[in-house]
C-alpha cells in the first residue's frame, strides 16, 4: 500500500516560539507512490517541519499538502511517523508497543497478535517480545519503533532522522533492513536526515534543502543497485554531488553552515 505525497508552495513557521520565524518557505515536493525519497539539509532547515506537515501534526501557513490526492487535515494511521528518539511507550512490552496502533484502531486481538508476531520476526525482535523498551539496546528500540510503524500498514512512512542516535554498526544494519522492508511493502517513504551519505544510500532521490528559511535547492536521482551501504564508493561519489549542491547554495548567499559550525552537514 502506498500513496503519493505532494507539497505545493508550502510555507510554515516554527511552532511554539514567541517570534514567528519561517521554518520553510515556498517548498514544493512531489513524491510518487512507493517512492523512497530522502530529504537532506543542515539542522534548522525545516526538515522535521515538512514531516510534521505530512503527518498532520501542523497545518501549513501557506500552500497545500496532499497525500493520495486528499488534503491532510490531521494525523491518521495511513501516515506513520518514526522519530529520532524511539518514542516507545516505556510502560508497555515490545509486543504491546507494536500492537498499540492496531489496538487503537480497533483491530481484533487474534489478528493483532498475528500481525505483531509477523513484524517482530521481520525486525529480528521475536525473542524480545515480552521485554520492556528499557531492556533493549538503542538499535533494538529503533527496530521496535520501525515494527510499530510498519505494523499499521501505512501508505506513507515518515522518518525523522531515525538512525542518527545509533552506533555505526547498528545504523548500517538498519539501512539494509529498511531497504528490504521498503521493497517488500512498497510503502512510500520520506526519510529526513542531515547525513548526506545516508540520504544517498537510502533514497531513490535525494532532495537538498538549504536553511533559513528552508527552500529546495536541488535534487539528485540515485540509480545505484540496492541494497546500498554508506561506505560503497558509488554512494560516496554521489554524496559528493549532493554536497556540491549544498555548497552552491552556500555561494548563492543562502546560508549552509560549514564544518565545525552549528548545522554542519557531514558527507
Amino acid at each position: 500500500m502506498s500513496a503519493p505525497v505532494v507539497l505545493s508552495d508550502v510555507a510554515q513557521a516554527f511552532s511554539g516560539r514567541g517570534e514567528k520565524r519561517l521554518a520553510i518557505d515556498g517548498v514544493s515536493i512531489t513524491v510518487d507512490a512507493g517512492e523512497f525519497v530522502a530529504i537532506v539539509g543542515p539542522s534548522g532547515c525545516g526538515k522535521s517541519t515538512i514531516l510534521d506537515l505530512i503527518a498532520g501534526h501542523t497545518r501549513p501557513k501557506r500552500g497545500s499538502v496532499t497525500v493520495g490526492g486528499v488534503t491532510v487535515a490531521g494525523p491518521g494511521p495511513d501516515r506513520m511517523l518514526v522519530f529520532q528518539e524511539h518514542a516507545l511507550f516505556p510502560w508497555l512490552s515490545v509486543a504491546d508497543n507494536v500492537g498499540f496502533g492496531l489496538k487503537a484502531t480497533g483491530v481484533d486481538a487474534a489478528e493483532r497478535d498475528e500481525v505483531v508476531q509477523t513484524w517482530l520476526a521481520k525486525v529480528g525482535l521475536a525473542d524480545a517480545a515480552s521485554l520492556h523498551p528499557h531492556e533493549l539496546s538503542g538499535g533494538m528500540r529503533q527496530r521496535a519503533a520501525l515494527a510499530r510503524a510498519f505494523a499499521m500498514r501505512p501508505e506513507v512512512l515518515l522518518m525523522d532522522e531515525p538512525f542518527s542516535a545509533l552506533d555505526a554498526p547498528s545504523r548500517d544494519r538498519l539501512h539494509v533492513e529498511l531497504q528490504e522492508l521498503w521493497s517488500e511493502t512498497g510503502t512510500t517513504i520520506v526519510f529526513v536526515t542531515h547525513n548526506v551519505r545516508e540520504a544517498v544510500a537510502l533514497g531513490d532521490r535525494v532532495i537538498v534543502l538549504s536553511s533559513g528559511p528552508g527552500t529546495v535547492v536541488g535534487e539528485v536521482k540515485v540509480k545505484l543497485a540496492r541494497p546500498r551501504v554508506v561506505e560503497s564508493a558509488r554512494v560516496v561519489a554521489t554524496a559528493q554531488q549532493v554536497r556540491g549542491l549544498l555548497d552552491e547554495a552556500d555561494q548563492m548567499g543562502i546560508r549552509t553552515p560549514r564544518e565545525q559550525g552549528d548545522g554542519y552537514v557531514s558527507i
Partner: peptide, 9 residues
C-alpha cells in the same frame, strides 16, 4: 505525538 500518529482517539 506518537500516540496520535498511531491513530489513538
Amino acid at each position: 505525538r506518537a500516540g496520535r500518529t498511531l491513530g489513538a482517539d
